[in-house]
């Protein structure tokens, strides 16, 4: 591996997206090449900063409209516990309008008690 090849691979090594074989070849080259080692240090610092910077994340509710347009899974399940007789309330997202159902849990069985 030449220094030019190594330097184009180094950022991907720092990003941990280089294949194992390419990573091994790169490490073998760098073992005897101080300039490329310096490049690696710079790339690793960059990777560290990019990781430390709080990467933007989707808001928690982002799954809801996706579920509503696709699988229609229950998206919210509230188990209110024995104080209210073990009532479990589920909100169902579906391609139509949201559906809210309530079940009473008795001896492991779900008994429907409401549906809106």
């Amino acid at each position: 591996m030449t220094c030019d090849e190594a330097r184009t691979h180094i950022p991907f090594y720092a990003a941990q997206t280089l294949s194992e074989d390419e990573g091994n070849a790169l490490v073998a080259h760098m073992a005897g090449c101080p300039p490329c080692q310096a490049e690696l240090v710079e790339a690793l610092k960059l990777a560290h900063v990019l990781r430390r910077a709080r990467a933007p994340r989707l808001p928690p509710g982002a799954w809801l409209p996706v579920a509503a347009r696709t699988v229609g899974l229950p998206v919210l399940a509230l188990n209110v516990g024995p104080a209210l007789g073990g009532v479990q309330i589920e909100v169902q997202a579906s391609p139509g309008r949201p559906r809210i159902t309530g079940n009473l849990a008795v001896l492991g069985q779900k008994i429907p008690i409401m549906g809106i």
Binding site: P11, F12, Q16, T17, L50
Partner: peptide, 12 residues
């Protein structure tokens, strides 16, 4: 390229 590699985890 930077975002796909460092945040997306994609190879070159």
């Amino acid at each position: 390229v930077v975002v796909l590699a460092f945040y997306g985890g994609l190879s070159y």
